[in-house]
Amino acid sequence: MNEILQISDTFIEQNTVFLELVNELKKMFSCNEIIVPMRHHHDFPNPELKSDSTLLLMPAWNPSKNAGVKIVTVSPENGQFNMPSIQGTYIYLDAIKGSIKAILEAKSLTVKRTAAASALASSFLSRKDSKSLLMIGTGALSVNLIKAHASVRAIEKVYVWGRNYEKAIRICDQLKGENYISVPVKNIEDKISEVDIISSATLSPKPLVLGKYLKEGQHVDLVGAYKKDTREADDEAVKKSSIYVDTYQGGLKESGDILIPLQRGILKEEEVKADLFELCTDKKEGRVSSSEITFFKSVGHALEDLTAANYYYKKYTNE
Rank of each mutant, 00 (worst) to 15 (best):
E236N: 13
T230D: 02
P261G: 14
I266N: 03
I260V: 07
K253W: 12
E270V: 03
R231N: 01
K239G: 10
V238Y: 05
L252S: 04
G250S: 12
D257K: 01
P261I: 09
L267N: 06
T230Q: 13
V238M: 12
S241K: 01
L267G: 03
Q263V: 06
L259E: 04
S241E: 03
L259S: 03
I243T: 00
P261F: 15
D229G: 06
Q263S: 14
I266S: 13
D234M: 08
L262H: 10
I260C: 00
G265H: 06
Y244F: 15
L259Y: 08
A233V: 06
Q249Y: 04
V238G: 08
Q263N: 15
S241T: 06
Q249D: 12
I260T: 01
I260K: 00
A237N: 05
E269H: 08
E232T: 08
D235N: 15
D257E: 11
Y244A: 01
T230R: 12
Y244R: 03
S255P: 14
E254I: 07
E270H: 10
L267E: 00
D234V: 10
A233M: 08
P261S: 13
S241M: 02
K253Q: 14
K239F: 12
D246Q: 04
G265I: 10
K240W: 13
G251V: 00
L262G: 12
E270K: 12
Q249L: 14
Q249T: 11
D246G: 04
S242E: 12
D235M: 10
I243N: 00
I266Y: 08
E254A: 07
S241L: 05
I266H: 04
V238T: 12
Y248C: 11
